[in-house]
Amino acid sequence: MYMFCNGAIVKESEARISPFDHGFLYGLGVFETFRLYDGHPFLLDDHLDRLNAALKELNISGNVDREEITGILDKLILANGYDNARIRLNVSAGNSPMGLQTSPFNNPNMLVFMSPISMEDILLEKKAVLLKTPRNTPETGVRLKSHHFLNNIAAKREISDQPGTEGIFLTENGFIAEGIISNIFWVSNGTIYTPDLSTGILNGITRQWIIEYAYHIGLRCEEGFFTPADLKRADELFYTNSIQEIVSVYSIDSGSRFQGKSGPVTRKLYEGYQRFKKQISSRNELHTYGEIL
């Protein structure tokens, strides 16, 4: 398998970065994961906008632009032979002496990983459990998609390796937050609900797409502070991320049951996702399809 490492396409076994990278020493790094569909990087512009905002927050110099990344992706597609793939774009602070640096990091390390993934247009159905591990609070004003993943790892250990199960974090105050690797949505009486960003959740790219697409097709979506009781009264429940797309949920805590993959709102959103995943680079492009949505 080939990857990109600081300007070169190399075999994964040959990639090298310094142990003095502050991404390794102090967790100063961020990443994005997204998918290629027949070579098209879905919502790439939205991912880069979030990445660049995070780099600014971490005082890491530079701006990752679309032309640079698409050029790297073209080379990786050629080297690996995959045009349906999972991509991880990782930028860390770069090399510096040990110690807590306050000045800008001017030479970040950039890595791009590629792995093959099948393109099955199937709405999956899984179950969910409420976690005992609480969601920690963000290190900065908003949650970054950063190297700080111990909270997620602790939650994953709590439910062990169950591919058909997603854990749902609660905040320390008992409000619904997000999944271990996902954002959470549910539907009650035709209205879509999802936790507000001020609960400390990641503003997922697929989350943003769902909210925008729902608006364009006339579905009401409310963000706020909700309890497990609100969640368990729902008709439909689903979670989202950029790799698994939209996944329906049929039960939570082996008790409350939902409509799962037969849920009409979940299915409508899923079908919209399938329609656009090979076409657009930003959720903002949806307005150009206004008359036919």
Rank of each mutant, 00 (worst) to 15 (best):
Trp186Val: 08
Trp186Cys: 10
Trp186Asn: 04
Trp186Tyr: 11
Val187Gly: 00
Val187Arg: 06
Val187Pro: 07
Val187Trp: 08
Ser188Val: 13
Ser188Gln: 14
Asn189Thr: 11
Asn189Phe: 10
Asn189His: 14
Gly190Tyr: 07
Gly190Phe: 02
Gly190His: 09
Thr191Gln: 10
Thr191Ala: 13
Ile192Ala: 00
Tyr193His: 10
Thr194Pro: 08
Thr194Asp: 02
Pro195Val: 02
Asp196Gly: 03
Asp196Asn: 12
Ser198Leu: 14
Ser198Tyr: 15
Ser198Cys: 12
Ser198His: 15
Thr199Val: 15
Ile201Phe: 04
Ile201Ser: 07
Ile201Pro: 07
Ile201Glu: 05
Ile201Ala: 05
Ile201Gly: 03
Leu202Pro: 04
Leu202Asn: 01
Asn203Val: 00
Asn203Tyr: 05
Asn203Gln: 12
Gly204Ile: 03
Thr206Trp: 04
Thr206Gln: 10
Thr206Met: 14
Thr206Asn: 05
Thr206Ile: 11
Arg207Asn: 08
Arg207Gly: 08
Arg207His: 10
Gln208Thr: 00
Gln208Trp: 05
Gln208Cys: 04
Gln208Met: 02
Trp209Phe: 14
Trp209Asn: 00
Trp209Lys: 01
Ile211His: 04
Ile211Gly: 00
Ile211Ser: 07
Glu212Lys: 15
Tyr213Gly: 03
Ala214Gln: 09
Ala214Ser: 12
Tyr215Ala: 12
Tyr215Lys: 15
His216Met: 12
His216Gly: 00
His216Arg: 15
Leu219Thr: 04
Leu219His: 04
Arg220Val: 14
Arg220Tyr: 09
Arg220Ser: 15
Cys221Asp: 09
Cys221Arg: 02
Glu222Ser: 08
Gly224Val: 04
Gly224Trp: 07
Phe226Val: 07
Phe226His: 02
Thr227Asp: 05
Thr227Cys: 03
Pro228Met: 06
Pro228Thr: 10
Pro228Asn: 08
Ala229Gln: 15
Ala229Leu: 15
Ala229Ile: 13
Ala229Tyr: 15
Ala229Phe: 14
Leu231Ile: 01
Leu231Asn: 06
Leu231Ser: 02
Lys232Tyr: 10
Arg233Ser: 14
Arg233Asn: 15
Arg233Gln: 14
Arg233Val: 01
Ala234Leu: 09
Ala234Asp: 06
Ala234Arg: 09
Asp235Leu: 01
Glu236His: 04
Leu237Gln: 01
Phe238Ser: 06
Tyr239Ser: 03
Tyr239Gln: 01
Tyr239Val: 11
Thr240His: 07
Asn241Phe: 05
Asn241Val: 10
Ser242Tyr: 02
Gln244Thr: 12
Gln244Met: 13
Gln244His: 13
Gln244Asn: 12
Glu245Lys: 13
Glu245Pro: 04
Glu245Ser: 11
Ile246Asp: 03
Ile246Thr: 08
Ile246Glu: 03
Val247Tyr: 07
Val247Phe: 00
Val247His: 09
Val247Leu: 02
Val247Trp: 12
Ser248Cys: 10
Ser248Leu: 05
Ser248His: 02
Ser248Asp: 03
Val249Thr: 09
Val249Gln: 06
Tyr250Gly: 03
Tyr250Phe: 11
Ser251Phe: 09
Ser251Pro: 01
Ser251Met: 12
Asp253Pro: 07
Asp253Trp: 14
Asp253Ile: 05
Asp253Ala: 08
Asp253Gln: 11
Asp253Lys: 10
Ser254Gly: 13
Gly255Ser: 13
Gly255Thr: 13
Ser256Lys: 00
Ser256Gly: 06
Ser256Ala: 13
